[in-house]
Design a protein around this nucleic acid. Structure first.
Length: 968
RNA sequence: GCCCGGGUGGCGGAAUUGGUAGACGCGUUGGUCUCAAAAACCAAUAAGAGUAAUCUUGUGCGGGUUCGAUUCCCGCCCCGGGUACCA
């Protein structure tokens, strides 16, 4: 009875329902586009609404961003804190293929579930600005941006994107002689030649320039998903989503010329406040290398040059062979008749090796001599030309000069085939391994002898430029982003075909809505699902593109749409953009490092070039929340007889080889925690057995029992086992083994926020998720720890209430002690929020409530401030207490109380006194006591006398208000 | 292999600029209340020695700088993430 009453004192169910209703009815969190207040934009990576809903790991980042958003409101900012859905995606479509249910229906159902879960946690989102990528009103602007990309090219002279119209004007005036652009391939032509070309030829040339272009591209083809994938969607030869095999294949695909922005994307990293690891991942992905292009003449082929890219022109005197990628055009031209057969055979072999095999066998060295020779431009030596698959066709020129003395791969290749190795940089031992550092002196190197490698690099580049055979060049590893997918559930391209040439639709025809199809599968002829749509043609009857856009299309500029989500005329109005600028704080998972976070920066820079937005980076500060891992629990199962299997603890070992023990996962819902151990009780086993069909566990589980001691004894006897019954066996329950791993449905370790909100309330959940540890760190979820936070929040409630749960406040003036507790809390909480240290802020609240409880403080003067500083973390109880204190309306927009240093200062402070660095005792002394006095007082202390043993200290260090170190 | 990040009690973690290592919470142990259990409250809780006061050791390992190092430097080990022949 008493217990029940006590629990009901803090009635979180009613309080939370009441305030969530209030916020929604009063539109408390609506952001204003016309405000005199300074702005602050806090954004979460919008979720893909999956069918399994949210688990406790998902809201972690949302809670952190919500705390920050609420804090900024208290600090007087006009805060934009929106939420939406990345609604296009493969799972809904795969589900549609299996069940025939339209992906829109699945998606809407999932969104509704997400919304319900999110609402329960009490987020301060401005839901009026919600976006969904699959909504035509939204994807109109995705399609519109695509058209801008299609109609733009990258001008290297102005270093920005410009309209294709202007390029055409230039072609008509001067051809492309004066144009410096980022292109697929360069064919020079004059104005006359341009004008002489027909429409089709002209369009083909323009396609080389467009930032969104259609071209034959080597793509990652995933036949299981029936679509191509971007590089970031493939990992080690398998699709990231689903884990299906991926092969390399040439196909005509839409691509985005992100490579034009490689340098800007790299430079921009220096100006944004992101974690070092993400910046580093992006730097590696962009992969800038500075070097030179150098042409080597090929013996016996006048006018044919082997052009290579190298970062080490200083080692050119050490070239002992050259290598072409097997796919290189020249291989067939230069291979001598006697080598032709072997080379052809080699090329065919490498072609048939899948990407997967190539990766698996990185260490296998293979190659073939072509019989041809290149001429070293400096030494005039004849150098054998090889073909080898360690040279990639897609990087640089697809050909390398090999310097085995100073490059590890070349060294391995040369050693394998017995090719010469020559030292041209001193400092290493090239008989053992390649010496790669750019340190030492050039040797055996003609005119660059005795130079340092760095000097030599410049000298060789200059010389090749004079000789007209080379120039300095920067290369990037980054590839253009393949932008088409052969799937249904994505944005249609606003492109139609006339005589096989793609043309953009008129902007007035946007949005081009996703058509209905009879099945979500490719056609019999292998065309994408949109080819099934009836009358998928323009008004004039031209066929419309049947590919759809990839997932990152809709997520690359959504943060702009939130600024002006209802605007039917523009992506974002100049005025709204000028006010909100860009995202101040962005929180999301690190898994988007090379995908979304790179594409969004690219789109943003493009929009900036066009003058559509005012900032060239989208996200000023980025925080990647760590993964919340699940604790999986295991039990061993062993066959007893036809109707019975025994459950045994994981630490049960058995030497009898006839007894087979099999490991099984026990779903987290059936696990109890007692005496510091995870266990499965008899009662829970019963429940679990009834639900067994929901889990893909073996049928033996149906007959599983926890053996009693008697049964074990019999069993041991039966099997002639001599062992004593291990003390890990118990009556009535079985101990479980544990493992921390990713939280996922298939691992049966998913904890959902809904259950916790129901049991403890949203405020407790919010506090606990933050309390778990630093936001950016991975950490295991441990449901039992939530009790501590729940105790804290009830203790807080009790500060304001008497035994009968009546508000009970004293109007007395607060003591110095009480004021100090309050103000040090305000100070620490503010500092912690500002450095995103949410876990320590929760500790601070706990300390504060512990101390006020200790002081039996129920004074209004103190307790009236507490709800404000707590409100970002636990908004519902904060609102309730705020109103109980006699305030009306929401706590959302009040002022964060400033702390007063005056209350923090003390007359005395505690010095920690150490001898030779070891702390021995503490002593309270006046704050303003001069160092010499402190020293005197310390040395006179009786404990000090003991440690000094009558000797004089060698040295005494006094750090004012902190420590004293006595050296003896 | 290369590039990042990280190793602190039984567990999650704290120590913000080199200044009392282990805050706060979980768990555990003992106690109060209760017929009993739960809840609540109180106390102890890094390890080792000691009745105790107290002492010794201690932040992955080895060394260094310093009056003083979880924090800075050098070398190594382990874990997590990224990347994979990028010339």
């Amino acid at each position: 009875m008493y217990h029940t009453k006590k629990i009901m004192d803090y009635n979180f169910i009613e309080i939370e329902k009441k305030w969530q209703k209030y916020w929604s009815e009063n539109k408390t969190f609506r952001a204003d586009n016309n405000s005199d207040k300074p702005k602050y934009y806090v954004l979460d990576m919008f979720p893909y609404p999956s069918g399994s809903g949210l688990h406790v790991g998902h809201p972690l980042g949302y809670i952190a961003s919500d705390i920050y958003a609420r804090y900024k409101r208290l600090k007087g900012f006009n805060v934009l804190h929106p939420m939406g859905y990345d609604a296009y995606g493969l799972p809904a479509e795969q589900y549609a293929i299996q069940t025939g249910q339209h992906p829109l229906i699945t998606t809407e159902k999932n969104i509704a579930r997400y919304r319900e879960q999110l609402d329960k946690i009490g987020f301060s989102f401005d839901w009026e600005r919600e976006v969904r990528t699959c909504d035509p009103f939204y994807y109109k602007w995705t399609q519109w941006t695509f058209l801008q990309l299609f109609n733009s090219w990258y001008n290297k002279d102005t270093d920005k994107a410009e309209p294709v119209e202007k390029l055409i004007e230039e072609f008509e005036k001067n051809g492309n002689i004066k144009v410096s652009a980022v292109v697929s391939e360069t064919i020079n032509f004059s104005a006359e030649e341009w004008k002489a070309k027909n429409e089709k030829e002209q369009q083909e040339i323009l396609m080389n320039y467009r930032l969104a272009y259609l071209a034959d591209t080597m793509v990652n083809w995933c036949s299981a998903l029936g679509t191509v994938l971007a590089n970031d969607e493939v990992s080690e030869g398998f699709s990231v989503r689903g884990g299906h095999p991926v092969v390399r294949k040439t196909m005509k695909q839409w691509s985005l010329r992100i490579t034009a922005y490689a340098e800007k994307l790299l430079k921009g990293l220096d100006e944004i406040d992101w974690s070092d690891s993400i910046k580093e991942i992006q730097r590696n992905w962009i992969g800038k290398s500075v070097g030179a292009m150098i042409k080597f003449a090929i013996k016996g082929h006048d006018g044919l040059f082997m052009e290579i890219f190298t970062t080490r022109p200083d080692t050119i005197f050490g070239v002992t062979y050259m290598t072409f990628a097997p796919e290189h055009d020249y291989v067939n031209k230069i291979t001598t008749a006697d080598k032709l057969e072997a080379v052809q055979k080699y090329i065919n072999e490498t072609k048939n090796r899948s990407e997967r095999e190539r990766i698996a066998d990185v260490k296998r060295i293979s190659g073939e001599f072509t019989g041809a020779y290149a001429i070293n431009p400096f030494t005039k030596e004849e150098i054998p030309i090889w073909v080898g698959d360690y040279v990639l066709a897609g990087y640089g020129t697809g050909a390398v000069m090999a310097v085995p003395g100073h490059d590890g791969r070349d060294w391995a290749f040369a050693t394998h085939f017995g090719l010469p190795i020559k030292e041209v940089i001193s400092g290493g031992d090239i008989s053992k391994e390649a010496y790669e550092p750019k340190e030492g002196k050039c040797v055996n190197s003609g005119f660059i002898n005795d130079m340092t490698p760095l000097e030599a690099i410049q000298a060789v580049i200059r010389k090749t430029e004079e000789m007209g055979i080379g120039y300095g060049k920067v290369n990037y590893r980054l590839r253009d982003a393949i932008f088409s997918r052969q799937r249904y559930w994505g944005e249609p391209f606003p492109i139609y075909y006339k005589d096989g040439i793609p043309y953009p639709m008129n902007e007035s025809e946007l949005p081009l809505e996703l058509p209905e199809v009879d099945a979500f599968l490719p056609t019999e002829t292998g065309e994408p699902p949109l080819a099934r749509a009836k009358n998928w043609r323009t008004k004039e009857g031209y066929p419309i593109e049947t590919n759809t856009m990839p997932g990152f299309a809709g997520s690359s500029a959504y943060y702009y749409r939130y600024m002006d989500s209802k605007n039917p005329n523009e992506l974002v109005s100049k005025k709204s953009n000028a006010y909100w600028e860009n995202v101040d704080l962005y929180i999301g998972g690190a898994e988007h490092a090379t995908g979304h976070l790179l594409y969004a920066r690219f789109w943003n820079k493009f929009l900036f070039d066009l003058g559509l937005v005012c900032k060239d980076e989208p996200f000023k500060k980025l925080i990647n929340q760590g993964m919340i891992q699940g604790v999986s629990t295991f039990v061993q199962l062993t066959f007893r007889n036809q109707n019975c299997t025994y459950l045994l603890p994981m630490n049960f070992k058995c030497n009898n080889p006839q007894i087979l023990l099999r490991e099984f996962r026990v779903p987290v819902d059936y696990v109890s925690f007692e005496n510091g151990k995870y266990i499965l009780t008899k009662q829970n086993l019963e429940k679990f057995r009834n639900m067994i069909s929901e889990y893909k566990q073996v049928t033996e589980f149906t007959y599983a029992v926890i053996p009693t001691t008697e049964q074990i004894k019999d069993w041991f006897k039966e099997w002639n086992m001599q062992e004593d019954i291990p003390n890990s066996l118990h009556e009535g329950f079985v101990e479980l083994g544990t493992m921390v791993e990713k939280m996922s449905k298939s691992k049966y370790n998913v904890v959902t926020p809904d259950d916790l909100v129901e049991k403890y309330g949203a405020d407790t959940l919010r506090l606990y998720e933050m309390f778990l540890g630093p936001l950016e760190q991975h950490k295991p979820w441990d449901t039992k720890g939530i009790e501590g936070v729940f105790r804290f929040i009830r203790k807080l409630w009790k500060l304001y209430h008497d035994f009968d749960n009546k508000l009970c406040l004293s109007e007395e003036a607060p003591t110095k002690k009480e004021l100090k507790v309050l103000h040090k809390t305000i100070k620490k909480v503010q500092e912690d929020i500002e450095r995103f240290s949410f876990n320590t802020a929760v500790s601070t609240f706990m300390i504060c409530v512990n101390e006020l409880t200790e002081l039996k403080c129920n004074k209004r003067a103190i307790l009236k401030e507490l709800p404000i500083i707590l409100s970002p973390y636990a908004p519902h109880i904060a609102e309730e207490l705020w109103n109980l204190l006699g305030n009306s309306g929401s706590i959302t927009h009040v002022n964060f109380p400033p702390y007063n240093e005056e209350f923090l200062s003390e007359d005395n402070c505690t010095y920690a006194v150490s001898f030779n660095g070891k702390m021995r005792f503490t002593i309270d002394l006046p704050v303003d006591m001069p160092s010499s006095e402190v020293e005197k007082n310390v040395l006179e202390h009786e404990v000090a006398q003991k440690w000094l043993e009558g000797k004089n200290p060698k040295k005494v260090i006094v750090v004012p208000k902190k420590i004293v170190n006595v050296v003896i």
